[in-house]
């Protein structure tokens, strides 16, 4: 491949666009490396980590509750006719629990969090960047990266498994209410049936997925916001790109993790 040269005489290793992609990937890995370095270096911003956990976790509860509950009901209602055709509607709790715990709860919660939390982080940090608040932190001899980035990435990483487990439970509750209404199944029978097919691997893989998704949402939001430029337009772009990149990466991670978990199942 012949190296490209632009109008200013600047040479590129491959081509301008390809070099830009490689440079961006390199910068993201540097960014992640710095997060790990700062996360394990004193002093620690415990108060801000707790504050961000509250923002990410507690403030997402209404949305996660609503979507989890609706998914539980809708998935149950959609699955019933097919199972009933084979006289297997008693398998509904097992089917629902597998679907919710293994796939729906982690994926749907992560996508909701990417939209809500990711855009919030991207816009907040982007706004701080373009109004020189991050520079102000830096010149006042503090470490804005540790205070703004590390705390948010830690919060999304810690809180996503909690939100996923919570979403799963609410989804199961929605499913139980629908099954109880139609099949008059008792709560004890529902729980026994639902958890008979769920293994520790299912729960652990869900938690692992949630950790990966949380980290991805935090990094995407912080990276886009921390390096935002071009005023208010840049803030909008940071928020938007944070969501798009996070969602894209979540689907890629889902595919990889599912392959991996299935190979060890």
């Amino acid at each position: 491949m012949k190296a490209e040269t632009d109008n200013n005489g600047k040479k590129y290793l491959f081509s301008k666009s390809l070099d830009t992609v490689f440079l961006a990937v390199n910068n993201v890995f540097k960014f992640i490396g710095l997060i790990f370095k700062e996360a394990f270096t004193a002093p620690f911003e415990w108060k801000e980590i707790i504050n961000q956990c509250f923002n990410v976790g507690f403030k997402s509860l209404p949305l996660v509750s609503l979507t989890g509950f609706i998914i539980g009901i809708v998935f149950t209602k959609q699955s019933r006719p097919s199972l009933s055709t084979f006289g297997a509607s008693s398998w509904l709790p097992s089917l629902i629990s597998i679907a919710i715990i293994r796939a729906l709860a982690p994926l749907v919660t992560a996508l909701i969090a990417a939209g809500k939390v990711g855009s919030n982080i991207g816009a907040e940090l982007g706004s701080m960047k373009v109004t020189e608040q991050i520079d102000a932190m830096e010149v006042s001899a503090t470490n804005p990266f540790k205070y703004l980035v590390v705390t948010r990435v830690m919060a999304t990483t810690f809180m996503m498994p909690v939100l996923v487990l919570y979403s799963g439970l609410v989804g199961m509750l929605g499913s139980f209410m629908n099954i109880h209404q139609n099949e008059q199944t008792s709560f004890a029978a529902f729980i026994k049936n639902a958890f008979s097919t769920i293994s520790f691997l299912d729960i652990n893989s869900s938690i692992f997925k949630a950790v990966c998704y949380g980290f991805t949402i935090g990094v995407a939001g912080c990276y886009q916001g921390y390096y935002a430029e071009n005023g208010t337009q840049g803030v909008g772009k940071a928020a938007n790109t944070a969501v798009v990149v996070a969602m894209f990466l979540i689907f890629i991670e889902e595919m990889i993790i599912v392959q991996f978990v299935n190979s060890i199942r």
């Binding site: 907040e124 701080m128 020189e132 608040q133 520079d135 102000a136 830096e138 006042s140 001899a141 470490n143």
Partner: peptide, 20 residues
């Protein structure tokens, strides 16, 4: 650099107060 910055005060054009 951080130690040096603690001896430098920087007043920004738009004040750059932390709005949260």
């Amino acid at each position: 650099l951080r130690a040096l910055r603690s001896k430098i005060g920087f007043s920004f054009q738009n004040s750059a107060l932390y709005d949260s």
